[in-house]
């Protein structure tokens, strides 16, 4: 039996909004540690890995591991029936064929309850290898979104070059080219606006603009985003949550 209560429905709504274009059907794996989701997009180019830890819920109970097969388009329809500020409760029995979604307003004088039919999804979990990343860049998530947005109209690919001196995003297309360079900076009073680079060696990756921009749907979940890069390896784009994380992996483009 799963019972999870979130004080604000907005967290769950935003998380589902952020992944629903990449993934249509997926299992929410419920354990005593929390809710997790791991799924690839249909073209097997990117992978979403979500973790909402139990301590992020005001109430959480899961006495037996459950895999809830959910169609995210359907879940979105139900989540839109609740307001962002509502208290959200997710409930499913051990052999339930539906997930109960309850909303309660902050005045506690309006309760609504919806049931989402569950699906049987045969999903393969990929083993994500431990990677020693050459560079880790933490920057404002809005800045990353802006770069991806600006470059989408110029090129299908963005190359990220990271050195000690800074990180450079470059794009090259039919109409011309562009680049944005960010240098590490710090501001004690506004740490969310800092750009931080941890580098063991210079690294360069070429990535699909479309997918990177898709990851930016998570911008509203976190003021900062971390990009982790290793040569010829998938990039890890991580949005930290107050209790858990939303991670995206994207395979690089390689010169043939």
């Amino acid at each position: 039996m799963l019972e999870g209560k979130l004080e604000q429905a907005s967290l769950f709504k935003k998380v589902v909004e952020a992944v629903r274009e990449l993934v249509q059907d997926c299992n929410f794996d419920c354990t005593e540690n929390g809710l997790a989701l791991q799924a690839m997009d249909t073209s097997h180019v990117s992978l979403v890995s979500l973790l909402l830890t139990a301590d992020g819920f005001s109430e959480y109970r899961c006495d037996r591991n459950l895999a809830l097969g959910i169609n995210l388009v359907s879940l979105t329809k139900i989540l839109r029936c609740g307001n962002n500020e509502d208290i959200l409760t997710l409930e499913a029995g051990d052999s339930a064929d539906s997930l109960v979604v309850r909303f309660e307003n902050t005045q506690q004088d309006r309760m609504s309850e919806y049931a989402l039919k569950l699906m049987d999804i045969d999903q393969e979990h990929l083993g994500i290898p431990e990677t020693e990343y050459a560079a880790s860049i933490t920057m404002p998530s809005t800045e990353f979104q802006r770069i991806c947005r600006d470059m989408q109209s110029i090129s299908e690919s963005i190359t990220i070059d990271c050195t000690k001196g800074g990180v450079k995003f470059t794009c090259e297309g039919d109409i011309g080219s562009g680049s944005v360079t960010l240098k590490p900076n710090s501001s004690a009073d506004k740490p969310e606006l800092c750009t931080k680079i941890d580098l063991s060696e210079p690294v360069s990756l070429t990535l699909s603009t479309k997918y990177l921009l898709n990851f930016c749907k998570a911008t509203g979940l976190s003021q900062q985003v971390t990009l982790k890069l290793a040569d010829e390896n998938p990039i890890l784009v991580e949005y930290p949550l107050s209790a858990g994380h939303l991670r995206f992996y994207l395979a690089p483009k390689l010169d043939e």
């Binding site: 073209s43 180019v45 083993g127 290898p129 998938p234 994207l250 395979a251």
Partner: peptide, 14 residues
């Protein structure tokens, strides 16, 4: 143009 790789090339199937 560089070619898009798939993730299964990097991440192991169970």
């Amino acid at each position: 143009q560089p070619s898009q790789q798939t993730l299964t090339r990097f991440f192991a199937r169970p």
